[in-house]
């Protein structure tokens, strides 16, 4: 169950799966790698119910590479589960999670 991507002009939307844990990271990684070729991308984490550090680590690497490539990146949704996990792991800031966003 990889993140689905759909074109939105040039901005790619990557919908993160409900079960966004280690076993799903290979699929999501492929979607993210694909999105690196676009000029802008949106991460949609609204549907994420279960998440772990492997998943957040993946997003982190993606954001860093995207920033290096000058890709415009934004969050279009962050679930409670995802925000909570990022807080515990001390990753909310580096992931640039929006201060508040309806899940």
């Amino acid at each position: 169950m990889g993140g689905r991507t759909k074109g939105k002009g040039e901005a790619r939307v990557i919908a993160l799966p409900a079960d966004f844990r280690l076993a799903s990271t290979a699929d999501v990684k492929a979607s993210l790698a694909d999105a690196l070729g676009a000029s802008a991308a949106e991460l949609d984490g609204a549907a994420v119910e279960r998440v772990d550090s492997a998943a957040l680590q993946l997003l982190l690497v993606f954001r860093r590479e995207a920033a290096a490539r000058g890709l415009a990146l934004a969050w279009s949704g962050v679930s409670v589960a995802m925000r909570e996990a990022a807080d515990v792991l001390g990753l909310s800031q580096v992931l640039e999670l929006p201060a508040s966003m309806p899940a």
Binding site: A33, A54, Q57, L58, V61, F62, E65, A68
Partner: peptide, 12 residues
């Protein structure tokens, strides 16, 4: 220790 690129990342 985080890799700089997705390609270099083994996500597990």
């Amino acid at each position: 220790r985080l890799p700089a690129t997705l390609a270099a990342l083994e996500p597990t």
